[in-house]
């Protein structure tokens, strides 16, 4: 039996399909609980439906990047396991690194070499990628409730500054991702500023011509058009 007989075998597809189905059911149950709560709180149904629409559109373009991650991992690990990891728990930026680290710890120079050594490395790689996240999941189960509860209390205690403090928390995330773009070459910088310009332009158009629906999709359109602009900047930079 070869590596890919197991990696692309029907058993792994069935198991992975069941795992993904479980998470999808969970999403639906969380969604149902939140929609019910929104009604209880008397939230405007339009606000909720706008959230659903804008979230769906917003997610499309970055999901295609994740799908590309699947295409990148499939030649080394088959389709089923990367499909599982990228659909749940994994991140496109970490998964390939995780698989490479696991195969390197097994003594293979490259991930592709593991596939040439028969099906045994696949078991070890799957266990390593799963076990590597065990600590993270246990921390999530133990601390999400505590941290959330603490944040709500601290916000209330801090009065008006609590509103500011919660509002600026995301600035730390933005700063960590934005600052490095300036060292990633002209295309990344041009794409970043194109996206800024597109967002400002759409905001202006939505206000000037009172296009209410556009407001919900400005970020999504800027994201997609910004990504497309990278192709233009790459061609111009050559």
């Amino acid at each position: 039996m070869k590596f890919f007989d197991v990696a692309n075998g029907s058993l792994l597809f069935v198991l992975v399909g069941a795992g993904i189905a479980y998470v999808l059911v969970q999403c639906v149950l969380f969604l149902r609980m939140s929609l019910k709560r929104a009604r209880e709180l008397g939230m405007d149904p339009k606000l909720v439906s706008n959230t659903i629409k804008s979230s769906a559109v917003f997610t499309l373009a970055p999901s295609i990047a994740v799908a590309l991650g699947l295409a990148a991992m499939a030649p080394s690990l088959g389709i089923a396991w990367p499909w599982f990891r990228l659909s749940v728990i994994g991140s496109v930026s970490y998964e390939l690194m995780a698989a490479n680290m696991a195969s390197s710890a097994l003594g293979f120079a490259k991930l592709a070499d593991a596939a040439k050594a028969g099906p045994e490395p696949l078991g070890a790689i799957m266990y390593a990628m799963t076990g590597g996240l065990a600590g993270a999941i246990i921390l999530d189960i133990l601390f999400i409730k505590k941290v959330d509860s603490l944040a709500v209390k601290m916000k209330a205690k801090a009065g008006s500054f609590g509103i500011v403090a919660i509002g600026v928390l995301y600035y730390a995330v933005l700063a960590v991702f934005v600052a490095p773009f300036f060292g990633q070459g002209i295309v990344a910088v041009a794409t970043f500023f194109t996206s800024i310009a597109l967002t400002l332009l759409q905001g202006f158009l939505a206000r000037k011509f009172k296009i209410a629906w556009l407001g919900n999709f400005i970020l999504s359109f800027s994201l997609i058009l910004g990504m497309c602009s990278a192709v233009l900047w790459t061609a111009l930079a050559k």
């Binding site: 999808l24 999403c27 969604l31 609980m33 709180l41 499909w83």
Partner: peptide, 28 residues
């Protein structure tokens, strides 16, 4: 605002929808 009742509800709706969309795109 985050860390508010409405924020908790809307972010859960948003992430649930986002997860369903991502899973569907990867399935395709």
């Amino acid at each position: 605002q985050p860390a508010s009742e409405e924020g908790e509800v809307l972010s859960t709706i948003s992430v649930a929808i986002s997860s369903i969309v991502t899973t569907s795109v990867i399935l395709v």
